[in-house]
């Protein structure tokens, strides 16, 4: 497993580096349409061929990976912070507040999040730049994805509430937010890390789901979801195997993250 994890680290590092260097590596801008050669096979000029509008698929994959790979952790961070605040505080306070917080969490968990996302997205202003639309998409994912983590963190905080060092701190006169910030939260760190790493691939896949529905990141900005949508109309995968590159990359990155998560959880 050690080798597998090393490979996972290397793969993620290479992917991140390639994304950062997309401006140098990409043979064309991700939005440029080469209309004379739509759906072209790989060539020297277009290493992964072109999409239905003649856009260079390699460039789009690089930029799309950048979007998904950097925005998903941001959304995961947001959702983990929310989960820490809501779940951690609920577990720490206990009683009425815990019941209320867990009821809200249950309610959020029971909502069909995809429809909720679509509805919320439909209510947003239209005249926004693609970058803003990306940010909005991932902020929405982050704001709606905290509930499962909150339950875990609530359970963690609840167990800490009766821990001896917390009781000792209380006896010493430490109460309220200070006790929560100084003694409870730091001891929830391992859980927080684990929840963060678990959320990253979840948000990558969530964006991909939205993208497949055409409701993710706005055109012409690519994302893994948008790139995967191109595969919907692919009936003979072996005949156009190069078009599977974004899917392959998604599987490799998410798989690598899962490997690293198990390591974090063990830690």
């Amino acid at each position: 497993m050690k080798i597998a994890r090393r490979i996972a680290w290397v793969l993620i590092a290479v992917t991140v580096l390639m994304c950062l260097g997309a401006g140098f590596l990409a043979p064309a801008h991700y939005a440029t349409q080469f209309r004379e050669i739509p759906n072209a096979a790989p060539s020297r000029a277009h290493w992964l061929g072109t999409d239905a509008l003649g856009r260079d698929l390699f460039s789009r994959t690089l930029y799309g990976t950048r979007v998904s790979l950097f925005m998903a952790p941001a959304a995961a961070l947001l959702s983990t912070l929310l989960a820490a605040l809501i779940g951690g505080a609920a577990g720490y306070l206990g009683g009425f507040w815990e019941r209320v917080a867990m009821a809200v969490t249950d309610l959020i968990l029971s909502l069909p999040w995809l429809f909720l996302l679509i509805t919320v997205r439909a209510l947003l202003p239209l005249d926004v730049a693609p970058m803003t639309s990306i940010a909005v998409t991932f902020i929405l994912l982050g704001c709606l994805g905290w509930a499962a983590s909150a339950r875990v963190l609530c359970a963690g905080a609840r167990s800490l509430r009766q821990a001896e060092f917390v009781l000792q701190a209380r006896v010493s006169g430490m109460h309220g937010f200070r006790l929560f910030a100084v003694h409870v939260l730091p001891n929830l760190k391992p859980v927080l890390y684990a929840q963060f790493w678990i959320s990253v691939p979840v948000f990558i896949l969530s964006e991909a789901n939205l993208g497949v529905l055409g409701l993710g990141v706005a055109e012409p900005m690519p994302s893994w979801g948008g790139l995967l949508r191109e595969l919907e109309s692919m009936w003979s995968p072996m005949a156009e195997a190069w078009k599977l590159a974004p899917l392959l990359l998604l599987v490799l990155v998410v798989g690598s993250l899962q490997l690293l998560i198990s390591q974090e959880e063990v830690a």
Partner: peptide
């Protein structure tokens, strides 16, 4: 409707040539 999204993306590029910026929005 993928064909409409594609047409909109083409319009986006065409109008970009005269300096018009289009924000493409796809909704359910």
């Amino acid at each position: 409707k993928k064909s409409r999204v594609q047409m909109a993306a083409m319009i986006q590029q065409d109008l970009g040539k005269i300096g018009v910026k289009i924000n493409l929005v796809t909704l359910d």
